[in-house]
Design a binder for these strands. Structure first.
Lengths: 142, 142
DNA sequence: TATTGTTATACTCTATAACTATA
DNA sequence: TATAGTTATAGAGTATAACAATA
């Protein structure tokens, strides 16, 4: 395959497929999507965060964020609230059910990061994290 | 964002978004898709390869490969040929136009891998490649 | 006028299953 | 029976543009 195996873009795509598989294997049978747990995770740490802020932080496009939020609201996992100070915006927070859901998912989510599942040593994992981070955030957030 | 920034899956997604941006910035204005150049690249090195073999090698699902091939054939970049030995299979190769196309794209494609665009030193890039490779191919291809 | 979020549309890639034609 | 590729359908994610409500 020549220089293709030198292409970061190509390699990253392969890695993502693998991590995607790991993700679903880790949540064996449970119906979660990567985007879902990501949002729940952030809202647990930042209750009442603005929808747009969360989207920006997670690199999710506004249009997609709207759909994601609608699904999570529909599933009863998060709640929307329009604050009187700025009635254009929407504040998001976990419902009780959402909190329970996250606690259910948390162990499996953390387990996926393990040497056992990824095949990388903790040292390699750290290194990889740091390099990907450097790649993903060129000179530290814009 | 807590342990989220420790999640390889999350980081890889961010990295892919960034590489995607780099990709399109690199081919400024030219209408290419990552999947397209990947296939052209492989067929240049392996003329007459079987469609299924290429798909397997590139981790592209058969169903998606069919569409991709149809598009490339429609664009006049590759040609299909059914060999008499096994009339179920399809052999792919670049057309003259496909070869020209690849030569047009090649410099920009190689330039994307550069320190200048990724922000990583050659040493870091090598390290990252090797770690991603290890992640993507657990114990060497199944 | 600018910002926040929504709707609508389209495209890439992935997944799955059912299908055809060959072997 | 098994394999190679196709078709069809569904979903996640991305991108863009036009829009309403609010600031």
């Amino acid at each position: 395959m020549g220089a293709l195996t030198q292409s970061l873009g190509f390699l990253i795509r392969l890695a993502q497929v693998r991590l995607y598989d790991l993700f679903f294997a880790g949540f064996d049978g449970v119906d979660v999507k990567p985007g879902e747990i990501t949002v729940l995770w952030v809202l647990d740490l930042n209750p009442g965060a603005r929808q747009g802020a969360v989207a920006r932080e997670l690199n999710i496009k506004p249009a997609h964020m709207t759909k994601l939020v609608q699904r999570l609201v529909h599933d009863g996992l998060i709640a929307r609230q329009v604050p009187p100070e700025d009635r254009r915006s929407v504040l998001l927070s976990l419902t009780e059910q959402g909190k329970q859901r996250l606690e259910t998912l948390r162990p499996a989510f953390l387990a996926i990061q393990t040497a056992e599942s990824t095949g990388l040593s903790p040292r390699e994992t750290d290194q990889l994290r740091s390099l990907i981070h450097k790649l993903a955030f060129p000179k530290d957030r814009p």
